[in-house]
Simulated scan of single mutants.
Amino acid sequence: MTTAMLVSGVLQNLGIAAIAALFYDIVLRSCPTPSVRHTLVALVFAAGAVGSMTLPVEVAPGIIFDLRNAFVILAMSFGGWLAVGATTLAAFAYRLWLGGAGALPGGVGILMCAAAGIVFALHFKRRRTGLFAFAVLGVFCAASLVSMFLLPFETAVAILMKVGPVMLVMNILGTMIVGGIVDRQKRQFERENTLTREASTDSLTRLANRRAFDMRGPDLMEAASQRGDACALMLIDIDHFKQINDAHGHDVGDKVLQHLAVLVRSNVRKTDLVARYGGEEIALVLPSHDAKRAFGLGERLRKAVAGTPYRHEGTLEINLSVSIGLYASDGVEDVEPFATAFKRADMALYRAKEAGRNRVEIALAA
């Protein structure tokens, strides 16, 4: 076995890494839920480790070299506990199944890399990683070569003297390249995710913004209609908000809006759409809420706001109230268009204001 053959084998393994990175990117972008994403990422890393062992370089009879340990040592950083567990188990089992004189040292090396990867991931949690960090991780990956001394001492020394330096360099470079490729895919996904989230989020209240409400609201109501399910649309408006701004300033007014956003968000489900629609107005789409349930939620929100004054810096207390307009459909087949439903809720809000504020008014589907 020559150095050229070892390098050639590593290059073939990098092809496996590139394919794994492609599937990693597909998983990040296409999985609808975190649980499914974590499961599939674990499978990608496990498949990468096993796939690497299908293109090994035999450095001595029964002793192979590949980039499985790069996948094992990186699994925790990019896939969490499930990924490192699945990758370690798959790599360990497959190496033992391949057999040969290097089966036991190879298995121990896999376990060493898994442990190093866990320590690395926990240490760099919430920190930015880069090629230098992956180089350090590659050094730990290369350190697993000490497992070769589970072979007869003379055999281990002979192998390491012959190809040890090249294997060490290839371990470091392999970990850096695999880590760099996957890390780039992850950062690109996170960057796009952040831009998408910011484009649909109100910067002050951290609720959905009007654009997101106008895009998602009709889909939610249409989905409820197709299921024959009830759905409600709610508009909440702070009473005398202009007076709060005039008396205390817009900074305090902004804090009042944030206060209201927290109260509303804490009283509804995560699946409900809650948006700052404009000014001091919050709009909600509430799937599975018929007229009775929606009115009950409106009353609960109204009382929560009235019973929770906003306290500014411990010196100023502002009593608040809200007026609420509701539109409710009880799951009839001919549900009115979203724009009509919104207009009905807006008219109900107007009636609540005209009737003295601090109340809930409801408009039923025609």
Rank of each mutant, 00 (worst) to 15 (best):
M1H: 01
T2H: 00
T2M: 08
A4Q: 12
L6W: 00
V7C: 08
V7G: 02
N13A: 03
F23L: 13
V27Q: 04
L28V: 05
R29P: 02
C31T: 10
V36I: 12
V36T: 11
A46Q: 05
A47H: 08
G48A: 05
G48I: 00
V50A: 05
G51E: 04
M53F: 03
T54A: 12
E58D: 04
V59E: 04
G62R: 08
F65Q: 04
R68Q: 05
I73K: 05
M76H: 14
S77Q: 15
F78K: 00
L82H: 02
A83Q: 06
T87S: 04
T87M: 03
T87W: 03
T88Y: 00
L89P: 04
R95N: 07
L96V: 12
L98T: 04
L98F: 03
G99P: 02
A101M: 13
A103S: 12
L104R: 11
G107F: 07
G109S: 13
I110N: 01
L111S: 08
L111K: 01
M112Y: 09
F124Q: 12
K125N: 14
K125Y: 14
R128L: 13
T129C: 11
G130H: 08
G130R: 10
G130L: 06
F132L: 15
A133D: 13
L137N: 06
V139Q: 01
L150K: 05
L151H: 04
P152K: 05
K162F: 12
V166K: 06
V166Q: 10
V166T: 09
L168T: 10
T175S: 07
T175F: 01
I177R: 01
I181V: 13
I181C: 09
V182H: 10
D183Y: 09
R184V: 12
Q185V: 09
Q188P: 08
F189P: 01
R191C: 07
T194M: 12
T196W: 12
E198T: 11
S200F: 13
R210V: 11
A212T: 14
F213I: 12
D214Q: 15
M215F: 14
D219T: 14
D219Y: 14
A223T: 14
Q226S: 13
L235A: 03
F241K: 08
N245R: 05
D246S: 04
A247G: 11
H248S: 07
H248D: 00
H250Y: 05
D251V: 14
G253W: 02
H259S: 07
A261V: 03
R265Q: 09
R265D: 09
N267C: 13
N267I: 08
T271A: 15
L273C: 10
R276S: 02
Y277L: 07
E280K: 00
F295N: 08
L297A: 06
L297Y: 03
L301R: 07
T308D: 03
R311S: 14
H312S: 06
E313D: 15
T315S: 15
E317N: 13
S321L: 08
S321Y: 08
S321P: 11
V322H: 01
L326N: 06
S329C: 15
V332M: 15
D334Q: 14
F338I: 00
T340E: 13
R344Y: 06
Y350D: 03
E354C: 07
E354L: 11
